[in-house]
Amino acid sequence: MATVEISSLLVPSIIEMAKAPSTSIPSRYLRPDIEKAVVPDGGQVLDIPVIDMQKLVSGGPNNPEIQKLDFACKEWGFFQLANHGVDSGWLETLKAEVDKFFKLPLEEKKKWWQSPGNAEGFGQAFVVSEDQKLDWGDLFFMLTYPLRLRNPRLIPSLPSPLSETMERYTSDLNNLSVAMLEKIAEALHMKAEEMTEFVGEGRQTIRVNCYPPCELSDQVMGLTAHSDATLITILLQLNDVDGLEIRKDGKWVRVHPLPDAFIINVGDILEIISNGRYRSIEHRGTVHPVNERLSFATFFGLAYDGELGPAPSLISEQTPAKFTRVKVQEFYKGLFARKLQGKAYIDTFKIQQD
């Protein structure tokens, strides 16, 4: 069994802190200089591209849905996935069970609290110093695939039926991730065996987020602006409170998910493999002044024993490599030694072009 090690300092529960008056919020959580989001034309939230999974897998040569997928990954870095095949009734069960899990008494949740240097369990991630600004949210994080690397104190010990629900959901999402990457490789005109070799046995982790309400919601941040160090991330909003914002054309805009749709985003690893054709996009989680927000992010990445770099079939004299090659283990080690800061990490792997 392997643990997910992160240079992380333990911090208090935000769910418990939110029960106190807003005047008692420690200064570490206050960010009065937060860049505000813009309201798109017409006063509506942002409509990001929608991809139909059934059309994606059933179309033949010159499938227009593949072309839509390529456009979404290239121009947006985000898209919604409809008709994904995960049962909507099962998703409602998951939402209800996660809600109950975060509402457990603090003493009960301490059974699954993070330990020093290990990110798995309740707590926060990417806390690397005593004076950095902190997010207004609690998370539950764990490695779920491959099965041999799971922490045995987590899924098996979760309350029933949450443990069974989590087993089925993570299995469904693992299969969906593999299917999506096959279609992404097709959209890139990349050799399928290259994607298979990069992924290896793959690595799936999950992060379930709870952002308690805060009267000073315009001065706190649920999740710091960042790009994901993944191939792809699949996000499920667990209640009706919006809060995901993406940086589009230099401005922060709010995303409103379709009912039962997943939001999928390109990660840093896919940007590197695609040699920059697809770009990971900065995004963040905001806090509501009155209502709690819940979300479930599933991250799909690479096994630790390989190398990461642009796919050879995408490199030519006309399209030289834009990123250096690096061992996957070193890539993740460097990532977890830093605090979240936009796309600063992936930028360290860029090759300066003449």
Rank of each mutant, 00 (worst) to 15 (best):
45 V>M: 13
166 M>R: 09
106 L>I: 12
141 F>I: 08
75 E>H: 15
64 P>W: 10
95 K>G: 09
149 L>I: 07
40 P>Y: 02
119 A>H: 01
55 K>H: 14
140 F>S: 02
36 K>F: 03
151 N>T: 08
163 S>G: 11
40 P>R: 00
109 K>Y: 06
86 V>P: 03
43 G>E: 07
108 E>D: 14
170 T>Y: 06
78 F>R: 07
71 F>A: 13
48 I>A: 08
136 W>V: 03
64 P>L: 02
101 F>L: 04
54 Q>L: 10
76 W>R: 00
91 L>P: 03
80 Q>K: 00
101 F>G: 08
61 P>W: 02
64 P>V: 11
143 L>C: 12
161 P>Q: 05
165 T>Y: 09
76 W>C: 06
86 V>Y: 07
146 P>G: 00
158 L>A: 06
158 L>K: 07
123 G>R: 01
130 E>S: 10
107 E>W: 11
60 G>S: 12
78 F>S: 02
91 L>F: 04
106 L>A: 14
88 S>P: 12
125 A>R: 12
106 L>Q: 15
36 K>Q: 12
40 P>Q: 02
127 V>M: 02
58 S>W: 04
58 S>Y: 10
109 K>F: 08
131 D>E: 06
88 S>Y: 14
55 K>M: 11
149 L>V: 05
135 D>F: 00
51 I>G: 06
106 L>W: 10
122 F>Q: 00
166 M>T: 15
69 L>S: 08
113 W>C: 07
84 H>K: 01
131 D>N: 10
64 P>N: 09
95 K>T: 11
67 Q>W: 04
124 Q>A: 01
169 Y>L: 03
151 N>S: 03
75 E>I: 04
50 V>C: 07
100 K>N: 13
104 L>G: 01
